[in-house]
Amino acid sequence: MNRAVIQVEIQVRGINGQVTLLSDRIQIKRAGAMARLTQARNGDKDILISALNGVRIQLPGLLSNGYIRFYPADGNPNETSLVRAASDANTVLFNSRQLGKFANLKTEIEKKIVTARTLVVPPPAVPATIDFDLLDQLNEQYKQGLISKAEWVSAKKRLLGL
């Protein structure tokens, strides 16, 4: 049985939780007294990179903590205050000493978001030769009312490899 290897790329501990960047998702784990105070109703959380719209950092002030907030594609990207951020399930608080690690985490997550959105779609397969005689026959059948427009369009797309 082949199992995909999930690799821990970055792990950063904040004031009210720990964020782990894996190859395909981020994990937010809650532990400690501050997490129990601010995140009592929110437990651990996994968010797929492909489901993220963005990441935002609020810098810490002289007397306040900063935070990193993850915006899922189905979430509301409105600005939030520190008080609301402290209880938000998609947010982890950090202090000024932890800023560098969280800034690096944000950069790496943004790179992964861009990579996840940049899908390489192969061009559609085009038949080696197009049978124009058959196209003409189908066109005549359509004009005579022997086949419907939907059938004509479907057959034409199939013959052209679309």
Rank of each mutant, 00 (worst) to 15 (best):
L22F: 05
K143H: 11
D131E: 13
K143Y: 10
N42S: 13
K111W: 05
E79K: 04
Q18L: 09
N16L: 02
R13K: 13
E79T: 05
T118R: 15
A51E: 09
P124I: 15
L63V: 09
Q98W: 01
R25K: 10
Y71F: 15
L21P: 05
Q141I: 04
Q11S: 12
T38P: 02
A150M: 07
G61E: 05
Y71R: 06
T20N: 05
V55A: 10
A103M: 10
P123H: 14
T38L: 10
K111A: 13
Q11D: 08
A73R: 14
R13S: 11
Y142N: 12
R36I: 04
R158H: 00
A89Y: 00
K156Q: 03
K143W: 08
K149D: 06
N16T: 03
I147F: 06
N53Q: 13
E79W: 06
N78G: 04
W152L: 05
K45P: 01
L160N: 03
L134Q: 15
I6G: 00
P72I: 02
V19G: 04
Y67T: 02
K106L: 07
L63A: 07
P124M: 13
V8Y: 00
R97Q: 13
T80K: 05
A103S: 12
L93A: 07
R84W: 08
I68Q: 02
W152T: 01
L63F: 14
A125P: 11
L105T: 07
